[in-house]
Design a binder for these strands. Structure first.
Lengths: 202, 202
DNA sequence: CGTAAGGTATACAGACCTGTGAATGCAAAG
DNA sequence: CTTTGCATTCACAGGTCTGTATACCTTACG
């Protein structure tokens, strides 16, 4: 029932083109609304080739999300590894990455969007989406830990919420600069958590 | 091109049933993925009746979102009007409402989800979604103002981000109690903004 | 030279999609 | 009693959807 996802790095030239076209169309037009015919046509490829390379639309969707996750992770990892940054600044670096990212992705989080369209929890999209959020959360936790912040786990969850909220708000109300707001709020929470001040009381 | 949306409060019995069925199916299965045939069948109604009442699927979708927004607004307005609450507690009351809401809506924000599926900015869904976010933002601002908080506008935007993030995270990673985290964070930000402490520095 | 892999081209199956047409039953309100 | 509104049944149009079948071409490589 569930074919395996091809490695986005070892694709034939046509498969590359298909994946790139599909990525754009899926993100901009929605997964369900975009048919394989359009993807094939816009890739300069026949539908047969598409199915030869990916086997099914579901696998193509999963590859799209996986590939997108890889690109996003790479961007974030580059941002947090900037040697110019202090340990504290590193914690908010993902928000800088997000600021760049949304320039080309104003329609919200592709993983959240995919979840909205694919309710079946068995669909590989759910695994990819959940994993991405978990990854971001542990990254925040690790960075907070490296910056000697009290309660890194709690702070990480707060930052992830802010992060997701900024992405969603960007899609719904672009007139609000939600990414900057989220980053400023993150900075504030971090500063508060470093100065050994009163922490959050449940 | 754009038929008008019927008032969800003055519907014939059949239309009510159609709207309720559609609401469930759209939210749980995605808007594009759910066809009018299923909606009609599950409502015990013929497709013709559906089209007599709503005119098009797009209008049905818009009515679904509008009706959902009305229910959500009502829930929030009830929560913030609780006479037991102090002015400060009122500011976080929408998060309490959210906690109840997600019990029956674990699949994220219906408006954000709709935006993900309907990229056309002319679609009425965009108006409804943007308006809902704007409404929530001004509500937060008003509540913050009533609680004599410095910079109510800034705080409101932060709270909206937290709010949306909690909703999105709930859908992606239900194992994290994101609503509680968001509410606690909100309380913290509010407390910080009331004690005339250092505010956010850009 | 021979073979295999990647790709092209066209057609098709079978299901589902939104939306319409035409005729009819039924009940309440004027 | 008749109009009006609501709902019904059945059939259909015209597309689009995913996925497959058949047959051919081109290039690389051993």
């Amino acid at each position: 029932m569930n074919a395996k996802i091809p490695d986005p790095n070892t694709l034939t030239p046509s498969a590359r083109r298909i994946l790139e076209t599909a990525s754009t169309l899926f993100y901009e037009g929605g997964i369900t609304a975009v048919g394989v015919d359009v993807i094939a046509e816009r890739s300069g490829v026949t539908k047969r080739t598409l199915y030869n390379r990916f086997g099914s639309k579901d696998v193509l969707v999963a590859t799209y999300l996986l590939n997108r996750e890889m690109r996003w992770r790479h961007l974030v990892e580059t941002a947090v590894s900037d040697p110019e940054l202090t340990a504290i600044e590193r914690v908010t670096a993902p928000f800088d990455a997000l600021g760049e990212w949304v320039q080309q992705s104003p329609r919200g989080c592709a993983f959240i969007n995919a979840l909205a369209e694919l309710p079946d929890p068995e669909h590989p999209a759910h695994r990819v989406a959940a994993e991405e959020k978990r990854w971001l959360c542990s990254l925040f936790e690790r960075l907070a830990n490296d910056a000697h912040i009290t309660n890194p786990a709690d702070l990480a969850k707060q930052l992830v919420c802010l992060h997701e909220g900024a992405l969603a708000m960007r899609a719904a109300l672009p007139e609000i600069d939600s990414v900057t707001i989220a980053k400023d709020t993150a900075r504030y929470l971090i500063a508060a958590a470093t100065t050994s001040s009163t922490n959050i009381r449940a």
